[in-house]
Design a binder for these strands. Structure first.
Lengths: 356, 356
DNA sequence: CCTCTTCATGACAACGTTGTCGAAGACGAC
DNA sequence: GTCGTCTTCGACAACGTTGTCATGAAGAGG
């Protein structure tokens, strides 16, 4: 990978970034057009009560000076004005789940003329707290949070102050707020039941840190099914604390090389399923060991075998979150809602492999 | 997909979002702690010259009142202060390319204590202009732009006013600004040369709208190779205007059913490659027709055959963009730079299929 | 012609904060 | 006790904007 990095030679006549030539303010526009500040304000805000002539003079000055409205000053003065900005703190914006969620949230926000401040938490509680503080200091109109902290008491003051907040993917703890989550226990149950139905009795589960709510819920669903099915729990088949595809792959490698390997794997999150599939492929077991993943992702249908997953309707989650958030921003003060979305099984092949 | 949406019953004691109980200001803190406004300001900003006793009184009042600093008011007063916010306008935040780019940019920004406003343009020029206006009105410290417009003269005033701006993936037109792009012509040449080297002479190309710079550049690279190789151009093998995987898949279907189908396909963008693969799979041609894609993406290695691609190092692009942007924000006024990153061929199988 | 209303416009304060500068008190040196 | 120096603190203006209200001119109605 080489890289060219040369100063540009041609294009001398083109506009270039230069150092701050202090931006024009309404005062400048007023001076240039020979009217009062307030009149400029009226023109800029399209308020009525300005004669056509004056309006035009002001507009000319606006373009002459490249005047740009300063929304921060404007908001400061306007009592209870919105900043037209919301914050979205997700786990990892580059993960297809967070990315799609952000995207559908963005679409709702744009319809409301609102910009989105987005950041990744990477399961770091301290970062969450610091970022929330930053968003509040920026006076966002609302907050979407996929928390990395186990409890969110630190948010209590903001909630009391009326900051519209919607939790997504994970429920709030220690505070009461709106949430849009998936029924993880149910989803995991469906997934594992599906495997049991194929005749599997040695089903491994790949799970993330036990501090992550969704991970433990999915693990719970797994255990419930085994118990109901009368399959004795085998702790060697439960691998937790997996943070990434590589760790999942390594776990699968160990499992498959053990004395009594699993005939099926339930992967608790999309990237863990990917790591598992990659290793099974490498071991030549892709068509021998069944896999069901949690979270659908692009191309899952193109794998061989195509991956069976529990799908969360991400677009639905995102727009649900957006709707909820903006109804709060608009002033809805009804009690907090918990929207729970049921994931659906998408059978594509990998989950329908029978035990050998 | 069902959905539960019930008001919450329990948890009555927990803090809940309520309507605006007007946020405490420094004035309130000053009143409560019996000092002047300015002293509160000093404490909040950790300025020296406040006695320990007073400092503590103020801090108690700050927590008592849940005071939160208002960065907008602060920035308004501070001359030339930064807002600690940058804007990133990419094509589609849910696409793995934009998402990864955003993520690595975010990491740079966080290190600089800066938040990122992110939005998707979806190739809509009007949206780009409106969003830039919005970002400028929010006084972002810098702008990252993957333009949807063909020319960006509308930015001239902002650039003159000193708005740090870095173009990514696409070069600026009509204005001069920093950019970080991939050498698309070169990348396309490598890709198509690779196919020619395998013996292919009927190579189709899937391309996006001709208004998209990167698309035409890749198309150009394709044509150059054919010419050099002495392969007569066949316009039926050039399909442009493909906006999504479905369109690409449809195009591939038509191509493969024609009288003289291609033996290889060069897909000009990751989603077009995906559409092509999906159709080839459906037609049972996945192992007969060679494919090389542009842009790597997660799981390309897990397809069967694994997809050969021209990889752009997205993380590198993102951090390069970030570094450039923040050097400008820090005051670097050297002439605009054009960083050009060379994509590399990642041979995985699909591109090494020989013609039949 | 006078009063009353309507309309366009401007003066001024205020939003929440910080930079500037000056005042009051403590302290030390003589 | 006097002077100077430090330290701590506050009054005030300013950032760029908008809400409120006042002003003056033009037009309506008698």
């Amino acid at each position: 990978m080489s890289e060219t990095d040369r100063p540009l030679s041609g294009d001398q006549g083109l506009p270039t970034a230069t150092r701050p030539v202090a931006r024009a303010t309404m005062k400048d526009v007023a001076a240039l057009s020979g009217v009062s500040l307030k009149t400029v304000s009226r023109v800029v805000n399209r308020e009525p009560g300005v004669s056509a002539g004056v309006r035009e003079r002001v507009e000319r000055a606006v373009t002459r000076l490249d005047y740009s409205h300063n929304v921060h000053a404007s908001n400061l003065r306007r009592s209870g004005g919105r900043t037209g900005t919301i914050g979205a703190l997700l786990q990892d914006i580059s993960n297809s789940f967070s990315a799609s969620l952000l995207r559908s949230l963005e679409d709702v926000a744009r319809a409301e003329d609102t910009a989105v401040l987005a950041a990744s938490l990477d399961e770091e509680p301290d970062r969450e707290i610091a970022l929330v503080r930053g968003l509040v200091a920026r006076r966002v109109d609302g907050l979407v949070l996929m928390p990395a902290t186990s409890r969110q008491e630190y948010l209590a003051a903001e909630l009391r102050a009326g900051l519209p907040t919607v939790f997504v993917d994970r429920l709030p703890h220690g505070v009461d707020a709106d949430s849009v989550t998936v029924d993880n226990v149910l989803g995991a149950r469906h997934a594992v039941e599906h495997l049991v139905r194929q005749g599997h009795r040695r089903i491994a589960v790949l799970s993330d840190l036990s501090t992550i709510q969704t991970a433990t819920e999915r693990l719970r669903g797994y255990r419930e099914v085994l118990q109901v099915a009368g399959i004795p729990a085998d702790s060697t088949l439960e691998v937790a604390g997996l943070r990434n595809p590589e760790a999942a792959g390594e776990a699968v490698r160990r499992l498959c090389r053990s004395a009594s390997p699993p005939t099926a794997i339930f992967a608790g999150r999309n990237d863990l399923a990917i790591g598992a599939v990659r290793t099974l492929r490498a071991l030549g077991l892709a068509h021998r060991v069944a896999v069901v993943g949690f979270d659908d992702f692009p191309l899952a249908d193109l794998l061989d075998p195509a991956l069976t997953v529990m799908r969360q309707n991400v677009a639905q989650i995102g727009s649900e979150v957006g709707r909820l958030l903006f109804s709060r921003i608009a002033g809805d003060t009804s009690p907090p809602r918990r929207v729970i979305i049921e994931p659906t099984l998408v059978a594509r092949g990998s989950g329908e492999i029978r035990p050998t």
